[in-house]
Write a protein that binds this DNA or RNA. Structure first.
Lengths: 333, 333
DNA sequence: CTGAAAGCGCTTACAG
DNA sequence: CTGAAAGCGCTTACAG
C-alpha cells in the first residue's frame, strides 16, 4: 500500500503539503491540491490509521467487552440486539469497534483492549467488581450497559426493571389473576432481582398473596432452566390453583410455557404466561408471548453517545440513565 | 499510561534493553531483567499495540464485514452463531476483531477496515462482486464464509447445501410424503438456491412429482415472508393435497408453520414441516422443528484458521471448504 | 503558501 | 550483554 511519502514524490511536493491537503487543515495552493488529489486517486491511497493514532493519541476504536460463561454470546437474543444497536451507532460516529467475549471473568480481554489503546470501553451485562476496578485504574473511559457497579460516577445505561416488574404484575392482576407463580432468574443479576422485586411490590400493594412458595429460582436465565424449574414445581403448581406464570425473562417464561403445553395445559386458557425482554422468539411462538419490552436499540445507541462524550471530555449530566420498559400484549395472556 | 522510555529511566537501562526483556528476544542479563520486570509490575505497564503495529507492519487485528439490509445482523440466529465461533477462535489465536455491519453494499466499511490496516478480513454472507474486487485490489488477505464469488482462488467456507437439500427430501419422502410444498428463499443467494436444487434433484431421481407450482418464493428469508407466502398459497395448498412443507431455511419454515397452526392444521399430524439451518428457536418451539443443521461453529473456526494461514503466508491446500450438513429430526415431521 | 524537523512508542540491526 | 540510532507513516509547530 502506498504512503504519504510516495504521494509527495509523485506529485512533487513535500509530505507536509500532502498531509495538509488530506486533512484540509492549513493553507495549500489550488495547484498543489490538484496535483496531490490526482495522485491519491490514481494510487487509491488509504491513509494509515495506525500511524495517525500514533501521533494523535486517539485510535477512534472502541472496545466492547461481554463476559458470559455460556453460549450464545453475540447471537444472544437480548445482548445481540444491544450489540447491533451499538454497532450501528458507532459506525455513524466514526468509531470502529472491537468485540470481545470472554468465558471467564479474567483481566485478559480487558488488558488486550487496553494494549490496543481503545479510546473507550463498553461493558455489557454483569461483571465482577474487580474487573471494573482494574479497568478504572488505567483512566480509559467506559460505560456500562445493563449492569451495575458500586463505583460511583460510572455511567450506566439500564432498563427500569423494577417498573417493568410492576407493569407485568398490573397486567396480570388486571386480567383477574390472583394466584401467580413466579420464575425468577439469578438474583445476583441486577435485572432479575429488580424485576422480581417490582412484581412482588405491586402484588403487596394490592394486598394480593405473594408467598415465598410461589417463587422458584431457575439457576440460569435459560429456556432449559425455565422448563426444568416448571417441571420440578409441577405438583406444587397443580395443587396451588395458579392461573398465571411470570418469568423474569422471556427465555425462562418460554421454557415454562413449553412444559405447560406439553402437559396439555391451555395457554392462556388455563394458565397465562408472561415474560420480560421481548426477544424475537417471543413474537414467533404460538401462542406469542406477552412480555415487557426493553428498549435495546436505545440502550446501545445511548451507550455510544455517552461514551463519546466521555472520550471527548464533554460534561455529562446524568450518571445513571434509565430507560422506560413497555408492556407488549400478545396472545399468551 | 506509562511507556518504554519511562521504564528505561526508572530501571536505569536503555529502551533497547527494556524492549529485549519484554520480547524475550536477544540477550539480557538476569540483573537487568529483574530490574525491568519490577518496574513493569509497579507501573502496570501495558505495551502499546499501536506502536508495535507501526514497526512490525502487523496489527494482529482482523475485520469482519457483514452486509445486511435488515436487522438483526449480529443477533441474527444464524449469522450470529458464526460470529460467536469466529470471536472465540480468533481470541485463541491472539487476534482482536473489528465487527462491521453495513446496510448498503458500499465500500465504506471495507475502506474503513483497510485504513485500520487489519491483517485480514472475513466476509460473511453474500456480497456483490464489485465489493470483493475492491477489497482484492489492496492485497489484504480475506476469506469468505457462507458466500460465493466468481474470483477463483478465493478461500470460502460453505455448507454442502445441495447435499442438505437432498437429505431433507430423503427424510420427508422416507416418511411417505409424496406431495411436498416448497418455500424457497431468494434464489440469488447461493444457499437458498442450492438447497432447493438438491431437494428437487432428489425428488426427480425418485420419480416424484415436483412441478413449479409446488414452489413459492418468499422475497426474504424471514419468518414474516414465510408466513405471508404460505398465506398467499393457502388455497392452492389445500387443493393440492400436500402433506408436507419444506422451507429453505428455518425462519421461512417457522413462518409457514405458524400460519398452518393458526388455521388448525395439525403439525405433523396433517402436515409435516421441515426447515434448514438449525437455529435456536427451532428447538424451542412446540412442535420443535425438524431441520438440517449447518455446522456454524466449524464454519467460524475454519474461517479464522484459514485466514491466519493466509496472513502468515502458509500454503493452503483447498480453496473451497465444504462442511457436511446433518439431519436433525424433531417433532414437526 | 511550503518544506524540514521533531516526535508519537515501539523494534531492530549495528557497534562496542 | 548493552545502548545509540534509524525507522515504521503520519501530524504539527516553526521558519522561511
Amino acid at each position: 500500500m502506498s504512503n504519504i511519502k510516495e504521494i509527495a514524490q509523485l506529485s512533487g511536493v513535500s509530505k507536509s503539503t500532502v498531509s495538509r491537503v488530506i486533512s484540509g487543515r492549513g493553507y495549500t495552493s489550488q495547484e498543489a491540491r490538484n496535483k496531490v488529489l490526482k495522485v491519491i486517486q490514481e494510487l487509491q491511497y488509504k491513509p494509515n490509521a495506525v500511524a495517525r493514532a500514533m501521533v494523535s493519541q486517539r485510535t477512534h476504536n472502541i472496545g466492547i467487552l461481554i463476559y458470559r460463561s455460556h453460549y450464545p454470546v453475540v447471537s444472544h437474543p437480548f445482548y445481540g440486539k444491544i450489540l447491533d444497536a451499538i454497532l450501528a451507532a458507532s459506525a455513524q460516529m466514526n468509531y470502529s469497534v472491537f468485540v470481545t467475549t470472554d468465558q471467564e471473568m479474567s483481566f485478559r480481554s480487558a488488558d488486550f483492549m487496553l494494549e490496543k489503546r481503545v479510546d473507550g470501553l463498553i461493558l455489557i451485562s454483569r461483571l465482577e467488581q474487580n474487573v471494573i476496578d482494574h479497568i478504572g485504574k488505567f483512566g480509559v473511559p467506559y460505560v456500562m450497559v445493563n449492569g451495575s457497579t458500586d463505583v460511583s460516577g460510572v455511567i450506566h445505561i439500564v432498563n427500569r426493571d423494577q417498573d417493568g416488574g410492576r407493569e407485568a404484575a398490573r397486567h396480570l392482576t388486571g386480567l383477574g389473576h390472583r394466584r401467580i407463580f413466579m420464575l425468577a432468574g439469578p438474583q445476583s443479576h441486577r435485572s432479575h432481582h429488580l424485576r422480581l422485586e417490582g412484581f412482588r411490590s405491586y402484588l403487596n400493594e394490592q394486598r394480593l398473596e405473594c408467598s415465598d412458595s410461589s417463587i422458584a429460582y431457575p439457576e440460569a436465565s435459560t429456556f432449559e432452566e425455565g422448563y426444568r424449574k416448571m417441571e420440578e414445581n409441577w405438583e406444587h403448581f397443580q395443587g396451588g390453583q395458579y392461573t398465571a406464570v411470570f418469568g423474569t425473562n422471556d427465555m425462562i417464561a418460554l421454557g415454562a410455557m413449553k412444559f405447560l403445553m406439553e402437559h396439555s395445559v391451555k395457554v392462556p386458557g388455563q394458565v397465562a404466561v408472561m415474560g420480560f425482554d421481548d426477544i424475537e422468539t417471543a413474537s414467533i411462538l404460538t401462542p406469542s408471548l406477552t412480555t415487557i419490552k426493553v428498549d435495546t436499540e436505545k440502550m446501545g445507541r445511548l451507550a455510544c453517545v455517552m461514551l463519546d462524550k466521555l472520550i471527548r471530555q464533554e460534561a455529562v449530566e446524568d450518571t445513571a440513565i434509565e430507560l422506560a420498559p413497555k408492556l407488549v400484549i400478545r396472545s399468551s395472556t
